[in-house]
Design a protein around this nucleic acid. Sequence first.
DNA 1: TTGAAAGCGCTAACAT
DNA 2: ATGTTAGCGCTTTCAA
Lengths: 340, 340
Amino acid sequence: MKKSVTSKDVAKEAGVSRATVSYVLNDVKKVKIKPETREKVMAAARKLNYHPHSIARALKTDKSMSIGVVSRRNIAEDRFSIVLRGIKDALKEDKYSITLCSDEEDLNGNREYINYYLAKRIDGVILLSAEEVLSRYDIKKLTSRNLPNVLVDYHLKDEKLNTIDIDYFHGGYIATRFLVEQGYDKIIYFAPAISIPQEEERLKGVRTAISEFDSKVIKFKEVISGQTGNKYMDSITYMLKNKDDYTAVIISWVDAAYKALAEASKLNISVPEDLAVISLAGTHYADLSYPKLSTCDLPLYDIGYESGKLLINKIKMDTQNDIELVQKSLSCFLNPREST
Amino acid sequence: MKKSVTSKDVAKEAGVSRATVSYVLNDVKKVKIKPETREKVMAAARKLNYHPHSIARALKTDKSMSIGVVSRRNIAEDRFSIVLRGIKDALKEDKYSITLCSDEEDLNGNREYINYYLAKRIDGVILLSAEEVLSRYDIKKLTSRNLPNVLVDYHLKDEKLNTIDIDYFHGGYIATRFLVEQGYDKIIYFAPAISIPQEEERLKGVRTAISEFDSKVIKFKEVISGQTGNKYMDSITYMLKNKDDYTAVIISWVDAAYKALAEASKLNISVPEDLAVISLAGTHYADLSYPKLSTCDLPLYDIGYESGKLLINKIKMDTQNDIELVQKSLSCFLNPREST
DNA sequence: TTGAAAGCGCTAACAT
DNA sequence: ATGTTAGCGCTTTCAA
C-alpha cells in the first residue's frame, strides 16, 4: 500500500501551512490568498498529484457528498437506468455521488436506506416508486429523522413531501386528443384493474379529452383488464375480439400494447387500418414491432434530473429553514409511429 | 441538527471505555469480553439507538466499504439493472455498498472512477462493458495504481486481468444445436458487421455446432448485416427476402430478431413454419411478440453476482499477495418459445 | 494574509 | 479482560 499524498505533504512542498492548502484548494471565499501563494500551492498539488481524501473531509464537514437512490424491489427494468442517468447528470455539478440503496429491512426491521443515513453514508435520499405503496410508517421515518428526501412518481399529493411526479393525466389527455385529431371517433380505453393514482390520473386524462372533444367522438368505452398472468392476456384478447366497430384503442401499459399488437395479428385485425393502437408509456422496442407502436412517452430522464437537483437543494437548505415544499409534475410527450 | 450518538456516549452509558464498545460492537475475535460486559454494551447501544459512524470508521481503517460500478456511456438499457441487482446481492453479506461511477473524464482527463478511488470513496471497481473497447491506457491506469478491479464482459483474455465473461461461444453453440435437434437442417446465421470478441465467439460457437452436426445440416450460410440505421434494417429485409429454402435463422442481436419478426410478418413469411427464428440474447419482450421469440439468454444476474463476489475477494486479498488471476465465463441458457 | 491547533468519531496498539 | 491514547486527513476558529 503506497502511502498517499496528504495536504500536509502539499503544505511542506509549497512551504506553507496545511490551512493555506485547504483555503486554496477549496477556493474559500472569505479568505484572501496572495496570488503567488496560491500558485505555489497549486503547483505543489499538481506536482505531488494530490487528491483530497474525501472521507476525511466528510468526517470533518459531516457531509458524505453522496445521496442514496432507492429502488424498491420489483423495479421496472428499463426505466431504472434512464432515471438513474438523469439523477447522475443532475448531481455532477455539485459533485455528489450516487449510492445505490435497497429498501430491504435488516434483522431489526430497519430499512437499508435509513441505516445508510444514520451511518452518515448518505446525505439524502431519492425514492423511486415501483407500483408499490409507501407505507405511512415509512413516510414518518423519513420525515421524523429529517432525512432530506424526494419521492419520485409516488403521487402522494396529500402528504407534505417533496415530490417529482409524472403527469399521467396529461399523458392520457394528449394521447386521446391525438387520436381524435387523427380522425378516430370510436375509441376504447384499455387499462389494468389496479387502483393506483397513476392509473386513475390517466383515466381522468382520457375522459377529459373525450368529453372535451365530445362532438368528434361517436363512441367511447373503457375496458378493464386483469392485472397479471392469464387474466391479463385473456382480457387483451377479449377486448380485441369485442372491438366491434371501434377504430382505436388507448392502452395504458406498454406490455399490454405489445401483446395487443401480437394478438391483433393473430386475429387478423390490421393495425392501424382496423384498429389504431397507442400506449401510454414508451419503450426502446416501439421501433421494432410491426407496425411500429405509437406511444406517449414518460419523461424518465427528466424526473431523474429534476429529483436530483431538488434533493441537492433540500440538502443545502437543510441548515436553514426548510419550509417550502416542491411538488412538480412533468409532462409526457407523444411519439406517433405506425400503429396510429 | 440533532447531535448524534457516538461510541463515547455508549461507553459512558455502559460504564466502560470506548475501546470496549468498539470491541463488542465489531465482535473483535482476538479480544475476550466478559459476557456481562458485552451485554451491558449491547443494552446501552440499543437504548441510545447508536449507529456507528461509517465515515469515521472508513477514515480510520482506510476502507470506504463501497465499490464503484462503472457503466460506460452507451450502456444497454435493460441489461444494466439486472446486472446491478446481481452485484448488489453479492455485496450484501460483506456490507459493501455500490457507488455509481461513470467513465467520463474531468478537466484534467482523469476518469471519474479513478478519481473516486484516489479520493478513497471506493475500494475497488467493477467495469461493465458496453460494446466499447477499453483502451490500453485505461487498463494501465487500472493496474498501475493497483486499484482492485474486475472487468465484466470485456473478453480481454490476453491481458492479466480479473474477468467475468459471458460464454458467447456456448450460447451460439447451444442455440444452433437446439435448432438442429428440432430438425431444422437449412440454417442461416445473421450477425452484425462488427468485430468484437463477443460476436466472434458467437460465430465460432455456431460454426462449431454446425460442423459437429454436419450430417444433419444440409445448408448453412452466414449473413452479415449493417450495424446501424437503415443499413441495419435493410440487411434484415435482404436476408429475409433471400432466404430461399432455408428454414431457420439464428440472429445474434435481439433487436434484429425483433425486427426480423416484424419484417417476416410484412413479407408473409410465417414463423416458425416458413422460417424459425432464435436470438442469441434474451429480453423481457420475448413473451410479448407474435410469435413469442425463442431466445438464448445471457446470464446477466450471474455476471453481476460473480463479479461482486470476486471483487470483494480481491479487495480482501489486496494486503496479501495478489497473484492469482480469476477469469470466469458463464453459460447462456436456452429459452425456447414459439418462434422455433 | 497566513499559521497553529483542535477536533470530527472511530480503531487498535499498547498498557494495565 | 478492559482502559488509555494516538492518530487517520481534513476543515476552521482563533491568533498572529
